[in-house]
Amino acid sequence: MCGICGCGQPDGAVTIRKIDLKKVNFGKVTPLGAVSPLGHHDHDHHHVHAAAMNQAPGKTVLQIEQDILGKNNLLAERNKGFFEAKNILALNLVSSPGSGKTALLERTLADLKGEIPCFVIEGDQQTSNDADRIAATGAEVVQINTGKGCHLEADMVNEAMRQLKPTDGSLLFIENVGNLVCPAMFDLGEGARVVIISVTEGDDKPLKYPDMFHSSQLCIINKIDLLPYVNFSVEKVKEYAKRVSHITEFIELSATTGAGMDEWYAWLKKQRNTRLAP
């Protein structure tokens, strides 16, 4: 059913569902929990919502000056308020597909287990593969499938949170859809945005996708175990990122070997403590 108008349009692409941890068995494909369709992103609106049937006399010009992203920004503010009230540090992880967001999370969740309560929202166009990988670590996770959508929006995160119910003082990782373009435009209400680039990508990525770097607070350089085999300059990527953004903190690590992960945990704890402090 359509979320705006209740018009009975069939469910479209966006679905949000919590992964049932009891059914997850390390890597096996699992049956999914309840599917909650998210109203107005589901379909391309092949129906008219305007109910007005009375004849309007002639034309009317409406000077509205409305920000097109206004609704998303408003909902993002609401998410932010929720996070702040509950002392939750929410991180929006953005990167190209394959930079290692899920691998970084898998290791992080395993290492922080028992120390800091962690929750995860996974954004992907299709499949719950990544959420299943996360669930295998024992962390609570909700999968958002955006279908044709190439980024997460604030209302999807809001809906996911209703199912996830992150606890006070927890860490919430939001893995955005792999894409360095439009997730930059859609604020989710996160406390910080973390951009990840791997050394198998071009070191000029910050110049090609300046918006994403400009809107991030931390840049993680992943897959440093592969540095000997690729033509990638860590110094250059830093120089380029500094040109187009205010990022001053870079963490070089390998989600595979674990090198550099301590620095990442120190950053997480510092961020979280600043938030928990009165």
């Binding site: 919502h49 309007a56 509205i64 980024h151």
Partner: peptide
């Protein structure tokens, strides 16, 4: 993302049309 931008524009327009009692 241009499609989702257009969807937001449609949402704004539909709300205005309804408010104005237009079609």
């Amino acid at each position: 993302h241009e499609l989702s931008i257009i969807a937001s524009i449609v949402e704004i327009a539909e709300a205005e049309v309804q408010k104005a009692g237009a079609q």
